[in-house]
Nucleic acid binder design. Structure first.
Lengths: 206, 206
DNA sequence: ACAATTATTAACCAACCAGTTGATAAATAA
DNA sequence: TTATTTATCAACTGGTTGGTTAATAATTGT
């Protein structure tokens, strides 16, 4: 019993260190020595618990997906929640989770685009989102003339993009939008939550 | 006179090769040997014309910004063009340029977020966008009650994000939105142009 | 024609990379 | 106790990395 604690200890130290190093530098920018140094273990220990840099990275990537804010999609599957409340809740949740750990989502998206061949399958496995409830709600609302007849995909794409973009690509937007001050940018992001909701609703009800 | 042709030739061969390799793999994933191999020149030639991997990369990054589709911002500076037409033109131009070379904008955004301390300054230098005309047009339109009183920054952020996101992070969206077929995704992107315009206008006129 | 400059090359270098080995210590099982 | 398994480590391996050097070939100006 006491032995397994040590196992978990060392293995977890490595995993946690790998998590933070990979998140910061990506798989190409990170070296395993940096990871083992940070974990304060011998380099050979990493290969005792994990069989390659790539496999270790994939485990980190899986963890990244789970912490990336995409769980907010769950709220879209709820049966009872009315459409508009659902949208509001989704935006709130997604924004909140993204702001809490912007590095994670940035990591997932960046590494995915740079190593899609290695990671796409993992993303597919890890994300499972059932759109049927949302589809039905949208169809019913459109049939009742409460909203325009829009594509559920476009709706999701719009909300996710609007929330994600300025958070994961902060440097890009702060320069192009000329909001170079850190605090101003935070205000700008805060302001966005309302903007995104307004924009989405006005689009739906036009 | 004839000598400078050779200079330009070799140097350009290296630059072009570097451009394509860096775009594909990023600075961390690319090796200089790969670049010189592709350019069919001796490795030392690279260091004859460029003094380090980092400087070469920065030159490639500069070129990347110019080809990234951000020139579409120019249309926002036009004096005569009315606001709504301007927005339409901006969306059209941006989408078109992004679709023509999605790799470039993806490269710029990704590398910027991974190496911001090295690249932010370059981005600031290279992008110069004068928002004053747009600001005035928005203010005037709001004063005349033609549009709601919205923030020009948020307007720009919305449009850019909506256009950029699904194009540069194709893999991410194709999985989360469950549009795994390549052709379907192209249709989805084509559809978006109209969606983005509708969404923006309905938001402005609410 | 010849000196000076520019362009090119193969061979080299130290540092670093991911990954291994074989010996050893610690825990567990008999 | 002793045999076995699990955990840890320093030292090593073969290959690659970004970058240099010194000699040479080609081009240029005079």
């Amino acid at each position: 019993m006491s032995g397994s604690e040590t196992v978990a200890d060392t293995k977890n130290k490595i995993l946690e260190s790998a998590y933070s190093v990979f998140l910061e530098k990506g798989i190409d920018g990170a070296g395993i020595k940096e990871i083992t140094d940070k974990a304060e273990v011998n380099k050979a220990m990493l290969y005792y618990y994990f069989d390659s840099k790539e496999h270790l990275f994939q485990e980190v990537f899986r963890k990244g997906i789970k912490e990336s804010g995409l769980q907010a999609l769950d709220v879209m599957e709820a049966e009872e929640l009315p459409l508009f409340e659902k949208i509001k809740e989704f935006i709130d949740l997604l924004t909140k989770q993204l702001l809490e750990e912007p590095l994670v989502s940035s990591f997932v998206v960046n590494e995915l685009s740079r190593h899609s061949e290695m990671l796409t399958e993992i993303l597919i496995e890890t994300i499972e989102f059932d759109r049927s409830v949302l589809d039905r709600q949208i169809k019913e609302a459109a049939d009742a003339y409460e909203i325009a007849r829009i594509s559920p995909r476009q709706l999701l794409a719009n909300i996710i993009t609007l929330c994600l973009g300025p958070i994961i690509n902060q440097k890009f937007y702060s320069v192009t939008l000329d909001v170079l001050d850190e605090d101003d940018y935070r205000k700008f992001l805060q302001e966005r939550k309302g903007v995104i909701y307004d924009m989405t609703i006005s689009w739906l009800t036009t």
